[in-house]
Amino acid sequence: MSLTELQTPTTTEVRVGRLEDVPPGEGRAFTAGDTQVAVFRLRDGSLHATQASCPHAGGPLADGQTDARVLVCPLHLFGFRWSDGASTSGAGPLRVYAVRESDGDLLVTL
């Protein structure tokens, strides 16, 4: 990352996929350029997006389990808070991205 970019952080919204690509309660992984992102659609309708691989040991986070507070990695069951990506059990932190839906498109802010 260049100095210029640091000074003016990019706030690009990237369309990564469609809402129907992510079944309710589950997560799916997408790519945005050279970044892989996991997008989660909770049963209450809310959306979350995080880095795709677990900061602990590279586990596939889109295969994890979720609730309104946390995401749990499938490999070693580390939990991460949606609010700030902090781990509830000692790993991390996890990078979280803003995500929203517009006309069925999933838009992630990288």
């Binding site: 799916r28 992984a29 997408f30 790519t31 970044t35 892989q36 795709a52 590279g58 596939p60 295969d63």
Partner: peptide, 8 residues
């Protein structure tokens, strides 16, 4: 059955 680590 989609991959969860598309760039790996």
């Amino acid at each position: 059955f989609r991959t969860s680590l598309p760039l790996v």
